Simulated scan of single mutants.
Amino acid sequence: MYRIRVLPAAVSLTAAAALLLTGCGGDDKGKDEDKIEGAGGETKSSAPASPSASGEAPKFDRPKITLPSDVQIDFEEPKLSDPQQAAALGDAQNFIRAIRYGIVKQDPDESAYKFYSDFQSQAQQYAKEQIKARVDAGLTISGEQRYFRTKVIPTKSAKSVVINFCSDSSKYYSKEVKTEKVRRTKPSAEDFAFWEIAMSPSEGKKGLWRAAGVKVTDPSRECRA
């Protein structure tokens, strides 16, 4: 399997405390960007707005995220009764989509992931490093990546939450930008990773949640079981 490894950035004390609530270890090795695939026509798909406490979409503009038609990011949608938890989950999903968008755009400074992450946070650094590693290697993405076993875990302060995902990248491949050659690999246990994303509400935009810290355990026995 062809891999790009990115060393983990130092997690802030606030984000680290939140992530420790999950009780899971492991290193962030950039597993989520290990593979990609073909090109195709582009479909314009804005990132979905997260619900507000009233159930209505917040009244601010969100970045539009456009992915090639052959890039598919699927999220399991658990039923959440708490609208704030639902909003945090929605924007954690948007943060992941925004990283993929930055790779497609081949721009480590693309604004979408910055919108969905705290300024100069470990999460923002993580996103930039993931995109830059792809750009430097001359790679983009295509294929299907699936996120499942989703959990939303409030922190003790109740001001932030930790979003847990499992991801399956067995149909997610690397693609060379210049030649458009798809680097297909056989499915393996290493296709599964466990995600922890610390999310906090934006102070300036009511209804928006932003990523503060990210931790990815790769590969994950828990997720492939």
Rank of each mutant, 00 (worst) to 15 (best):
E176T: 04
G30A: 08
L7E: 13
F60P: 01
A17K: 15
A123M: 14
Q85F: 04
S160V: 09
I141L: 13
P219G: 11
Q145M: 07
L139K: 12
P63D: 02
C166Y: 14
Q124C: 13
A86T: 06
K151M: 10
K186Q: 10
G213Q: 14
A92D: 03
A98T: 02
P58T: 09
D109C: 01
D118Y: 11
I103Q: 11
A189W: 12
G207Y: 04
K215Y: 09
A10L: 09
S54P: 05
D74A: 11
K35P: 01
P201H: 01
Q120N: 15
A9P: 08
L67N: 06
D74G: 05
R97I: 03
L21A: 12
V6L: 06
P219M: 08
K175Q: 15
A198S: 15
D118N: 10
T43P: 01
E33L: 15
E76D: 12
T185M: 04
Y172G: 00
A225L: 14
V152K: 05
A212C: 06
I73D: 00
P83V: 06
T155W: 10
S160C: 09
D118T: 13
I153P: 07
I141Q: 04
K175I: 05
A49H: 02
F95Q: 09
G143C: 05
R62L: 11
T179Q: 09
E176F: 00
E76R: 04
P58M: 11
V162H: 12
K159M: 08
P63N: 02
T155Q: 15
V162R: 09
R149G: 08
A16K: 15
S200H: 12
P48H: 07
Q130C: 14
A10C: 06
E144G: 02
W195M: 08
R97P: 03
T43L: 10
F75D: 07
E190R: 08
L67P: 02
K114E: 13
L21K: 15
Y147G: 02
V71W: 01
R183E: 06
A193E: 09
P68G: 03
